[in-house]
């Protein structure tokens, strides 16, 4: 079973996302990263095990846009679907993210409801 990676600098928001995923019945192991730098480190070791990435935009060090742009340029990881979960909700920003990664599978503006997050994840990976 593929793992889900949550890239989010807020530890509280990470806990909320992980809780929603687990309560929704997804049994996938979850990897957590506090910024894009850490996410790259984790991916470099576990890229073949990751089946979905949930990614914030505004983070210290390497932000979410820089991270997905970098991921799009690595053949081994560019096929991993990415869902942005971010306060950046303007059409311009959504378009910027879509241009940065061809496999952007969803865009969830914050604040979001658990139902919204479940629906978008459901549309990308099957529940096991």
């Amino acid at each position: 079973m593929k793992k889900i990676m949550v890239v989010e600098d807020s530890s509280v928001q990470r806990k909320i996302i992980v809780k929603i995923i687990q309560e929704a019945g997804f049994k996938n192991e979850i990897l957590e990263a506090g910024d894009g730098n850490i996410a790259i480190d984790i991916l470099s070791e576990h890229y073949s095990e990751v089946g979905l990435i949930l990614c914030d935009w505004n983070m210290p060090n390497i932000n979410g846009l820089e991270f997905i742009r970098a991921a799009a340029n690595v053949p081994a990881v560019k096929g991993i679907p990415i869902i942005m979960v971010t306060t950046e909700g303007t059409d311009e920003k959504i378009s910027e993210a879509k241009k940065a990664h061809p496999n952007l599978a969803g865009y969830i503006p914050k604040p979001f409801t658990p139902q919204k997050l479940r629906e978008v994840i459901d549309s990308v990976i099957p529940k096991n």
Binding site: S10, N58, T87, P109, K110, P111
Partner: peptide, 16 residues
């Protein structure tokens, strides 16, 4: 961290 995230969400919506 949690209060920072609350302000972050309000700021994002205000920006939008």
């Amino acid at each position: 961290d949690g209060i920072g995230e609350v302000v972050n969400m309000v700021a994002g919506l205000l920006k939008n």
